[in-house]
Computed example of a mutant assay.
Amino acid sequence: MINWNGFLASYRLWRRRWFYPFISVSVALSLCLSTPLPSKAIDLLPLLFQGVQIFQLSNLSTRQEIDLGKQMNDELRQEVRISRNQQLNSYVEQIGRRLAANSDRNIPYTFQVVEDEAVNAFATTGGFVYINEGLIKTAENEAELASVIGHEMGHIEGKHLIKQMQQRAIASGVASATGLNRSQAVGIGVDLALNRPRSRQDEYDADKRGLRALTRAGYAPSAMVSFMKKLQGRSSIPTFLSTHPGASDRVKSLQRQIDNQTGNSSYGLDNAAYQAKIRALLR
Rank of each mutant, 00 (worst) to 15 (best):
Ile2Thr: 08
Asn5Phe: 07
Gly6Cys: 04
Leu8His: 12
Ala9Gln: 11
Ala9Tyr: 02
Tyr11Ala: 13
Leu13Pro: 05
Trp14Ala: 12
Arg16His: 08
Phe19Tyr: 12
Tyr20Pro: 04
Ile23His: 02
Val27Cys: 09
Val27Gln: 09
Ala28Val: 11
Ser30Arg: 11
Ser34Asp: 05
Thr35Gln: 11
Thr35Phe: 13
Lys40Ile: 11
Leu48Val: 04
Gln50Ile: 00
Gly51Glu: 11
Phe55Trp: 02
Gln56Pro: 02
Gln56Lys: 13
Leu57Glu: 12
Asn59Trp: 10
Leu60Arg: 04
Arg63Tyr: 14
Arg63Ala: 15
Arg63Thr: 15
Gln64Tyr: 07
Ile66Tyr: 12
Ile66Gly: 06
Gly69Cys: 02
Lys70Glu: 10
Met72Asp: 05
Asn73Arg: 11
Asn73Ser: 13
Glu75Phe: 05
Arg77His: 07
Gln78Trp: 00
Val80Met: 06
Ile82Pro: 03
Ile82Gly: 01
Ser83Thr: 03
Gln87Thr: 08
Tyr91Met: 07
Val92His: 00
Val92Pro: 00
Ala100Tyr: 05
Ala100Pro: 04
Asn102Phe: 04
Asn102Pro: 07
Ser103Leu: 03
Arg105Met: 15
Arg105Lys: 13
Pro108Glu: 08
Tyr109Arg: 10
Val113Trp: 02
Val114Ile: 15
Asp116Ile: 04
Val119Glu: 10
Ala121Asn: 06
Ala121Ile: 01
Ala123Trp: 01
Thr124Val: 14
Thr125Met: 13
Gly126Phe: 00
Tyr130Gln: 02
Asn132Gln: 06
Ile136Ser: 06
Ile136Val: 09
Glu140Ala: 07
Glu142Tyr: 00
Ala143Val: 06
Leu145Ser: 07
Leu145Met: 10
Ala146Gly: 05
Ala146Gln: 06
Val148Lys: 11
Val148Ser: 13
Gly154Asp: 08
Gly158Met: 11
Lys159Asn: 15
His160Asp: 14
Leu161Tyr: 12
Leu161Glu: 10
Gln164Ala: 12
Gln167Phe: 14
Ala175Gly: 06
Ser176Gln: 11
Ser176Tyr: 06
Ala177Arg: 12
Thr178Arg: 10
Gln184Ala: 13
Val186Lys: 01
Val186Ala: 02
Gly189Thr: 03
Ala193Cys: 04
Pro197Ile: 08
Pro197Thr: 08
Asp205Gln: 15
Gly210Leu: 07
Arg212Ile: 10
Ala213Val: 05
Thr215Ser: 13
Arg216Gln: 14
Pro221Met: 15
Ala223Thr: 00
Val225Ala: 02
Val225Leu: 00
Arg234Ile: 09
Ser235Gly: 05
Pro238Met: 06
Pro238Glu: 12
Phe240Tyr: 13
Leu241Met: 06
Leu241Gly: 02
Ser242Gln: 11
Thr243Lys: 15
Ala247Tyr: 03
Ser248Met: 12
Arg256Trp: 02
Asp259Glu: 15
Gln261Leu: 15
Gly263Lys: 09
Asn264Trp: 04
Tyr267Gln: 12
Gly268Val: 00
Gly268Lys: 00
Leu269Ser: 01
Leu269Lys: 00
Asp270Asn: 14
Gln275Ala: 04
Ala276Leu: 03
Ala276Val: 02
Lys277Phe: 14
